[in-house]
Computed example of a mutant assay.
Amino acid sequence: MAGFVQIIEFQTSRIEEIEQLGRPSRTEGGTPATFRRIVATADRDRPGTYFTIVDFDSYESAMENSNRPETSEFAAKMAALCDGPLIFRNLDVLWEDTGEGSDNG
């Protein structure tokens, strides 16, 4: 397995507050992060709809992250700023291509 990705879909009219909430490292002064990368996105076709894409080495590291008190606290604060429920997609990565080293011409 090449990894694990969690996508969190949410709707909000308070995106600036969510961005501020997410800016400080949630692991400052604590244990190291279990994720590889987080990408925050806005849906161009549905204003007010956003996705956070979190890349993990494995499902296990994602569950370790989910079980942290600081993650639960962050999720509760984020949910309070949303206009509806958070929708979680839990995806096993089957393969990936970074585009590095490919012969494009």
Rank of each mutant, 00 (worst) to 15 (best):
D55M: 10
N67S: 14
E100V: 15
M78N: 03
R89D: 05
E16K: 09
I87W: 02
F56D: 03
K77M: 11
D83K: 02
M63S: 11
E96C: 10
F10G: 06
Y59H: 13
A76T: 14
F88R: 05
T71Q: 06
D55N: 06
P85S: 13
L91V: 12
N67A: 15
L86S: 10
A62M: 15
F74S: 04
M78D: 02
D97Q: 06
P69L: 10
W95Y: 15
S13D: 14
A42S: 03
E19M: 14
Y59W: 12
T34Y: 11
E96H: 12
D92L: 12
L91Y: 09
L81N: 02
F35S: 11
F51H: 08
D45P: 00
S61Q: 08
D97L: 08
Q20Y: 09
I15S: 13
G29N: 05
R44C: 00
T12R: 10
E9M: 06
G29F: 03
T34E: 09
E19P: 05
P85A: 07
N67C: 10
D83Y: 01
T71H: 02
D57F: 13
S72E: 01
N90R: 12
K77D: 02
T49Y: 01
N90F: 08
P47K: 00
R68Q: 13
D57V: 11
N67H: 14
A33V: 14
A76W: 04
D103S: 08
E73H: 09
R26D: 04
I87D: 07
D97I: 09
A40K: 02
S13K: 14
T49V: 01
V39R: 04
E28Q: 05
E64P: 03
D92M: 11
M78H: 05
D45T: 01
L81C: 11
G101H: 10
L86P: 09
